[in-house]
Design a protein around this nucleic acid. Structure first.
Length: 140
DNA sequence: CTTCTTACA
DNA sequence: TGTAAGCA
């Protein structure tokens, strides 16, 4: 199985919780323990079925990016955890109501901005947002 | 057999 | 982080 990469088009299947932790660890090339640590640190919140962690391909995409940030770009888990704990971009930037009307990020409260904006591609301002950038920079 | 939690070096 | 125990 190939490691999934960030996608331009929205693929519904990417959100389906289908992989158990063993498969995720194998795809990422890390030990199972490490995947659990990412969760403990708040980097990912896999769904659970009967107390079994089930990860979606989007989860794996994100975790793969997390490892890039850590191994190749000098980030540590704490920094990444802090970034994703920040409020939505439109809150940080105090976007006016008028501009939120057509903003896919503001339409999906509770979701990370890159998770929403990336797949819909209609929020061009994300290019200047550091949170969005580090979260989606891939395949360059 | 795989995963889960907790604990320990 | 890696490993182990004891359970499900």
């Amino acid at each position: 199985m190939a490691l999934p990469t960030a996608k331009q088009e929205y693929a519904p299947d990417m959100d389906k919780p289908v992989m158990r932790i063993g498969a995720v660890a194998e795809l990422l090339g890390v030990c199972v323990r490490m995947v659990r640590i990412y969760e403990e640190r708040g980097l990912v919140q896999p769904e659970r079925k009967n107390n079994q962690r089930l990860y979606s391909f989007n989860d794996v995409c994100w975790l793969a990016r997390v490892r890039e940030l850590i191994n190749e770009e000098g980030y540590d888990i704490q920094e990444i955890a802090r970034l994703i704990s920040l409020p939505a971009c439109w809150q940080l930037r105090n976007c006016p109501e008028e501009l939120r009307v057509d903003c896919p990020v503001a339409e999906s409260p509770g979701k990370q901005c890159w998770d929403v904006a990336q797949r819909q591609g209609r929020f061009s301002d994300c290019q200047t947002c550091q949170i969005y950038r580090i979260a989606t920079e891939r395949d360059t």
